Computed example of a mutant assay.
Amino acid sequence: MDKARLTLQELRKAVDLNGSLVSVHYACESFITAKDHPAGVACVAFHDLQTGETLAFSRSDAPPSKSTEEEKEIHVLERFYAELQAREGAHFLHWNMNRPEYGFTAIAARYEYLIGVTPPVSPPHQRVDVDGLLAASFGSAYAPHGRLESIARLNNMDMRSFRVGKDEADLFARSEWGTLSRSTASKAWIIANSLRMLVDGKIQTASSAGSVEFAGANMDAVTLVLAIGDRMRLVMRSMGVRPHGTPIEFKNEYDDQYLYRALLVQFFDDVRDEEYVPSYAGGNSRIDFLIPRFNIGIELKHTRDGLKDKDIGDQLVIDTARYSTHRSVNHLICLVFDYGGHLRNPRALEEDLRREVSTPEMAVTVKIYDR
Rank of each mutant, 00 (worst) to 15 (best):
Y102V: 06
H331Q: 06
G165M: 09
R272Q: 08
D273Q: 07
S161Y: 15
S324C: 10
A42F: 07
D370L: 01
T320F: 04
R99C: 00
E213C: 00
M232F: 15
M197L: 15
L335H: 01
L343Y: 08
T68Q: 09
A185P: 02
D167I: 15
I368S: 09
S65Q: 13
Y369N: 02
F294E: 00
L263C: 12
L198C: 09
R153F: 11
L195W: 09
H37N: 09
P119Y: 14
D255M: 06
I190V: 15
A90W: 00
R354L: 04
D352F: 10
N18M: 11
M197I: 08
D338M: 12
N252F: 02
Y111S: 08
A143V: 06
Q85F: 10
P247F: 03
D230F: 13
G178M: 11
P119E: 12
A109L: 14
H91D: 07
P360L: 01
A185N: 05
Y339K: 03
L290R: 07
V235T: 05
R344L: 14
L226V: 15
F46Q: 08
L264C: 04
I296G: 01
S161C: 13
F337C: 05
G178I: 07
H302D: 03
E69F: 06
L114W: 04
G297W: 02
G19T: 05
P120Q: 13
R59I: 09
R87K: 15
F162W: 09
L263M: 15
A108V: 04
V366Q: 01
D370Q: 14
M157I: 08
V271T: 12
Y254K: 15
L55R: 15
R99L: 13
A185C: 08
Y26A: 14
F138C: 09
R293L: 07
F80L: 11
F214D: 02
L264Q: 05
A106W: 00
H25I: 08
E88G: 04
E213H: 06
I191D: 01
G240W: 03
D36F: 09
L6I: 13
G116M: 02
P278R: 06
H302L: 04
L21S: 01
G165K: 12
R242L: 13
E101T: 13
V336E: 02
V366A: 10
I368V: 15
K72W: 10
F162R: 07
C28F: 11
F138S: 07
D167G: 01
P120M: 11
A348G: 12
V117R: 14
N155W: 08
A209Y: 00
H342Q: 13
S279K: 13
K187L: 06
S23V: 10
Q204R: 15
I287G: 03
Q126E: 11
T105Y: 02
P124V: 03
R286Y: 07
R355M: 10
I203H: 07
R355C: 10
Q204W: 05
G240K: 00
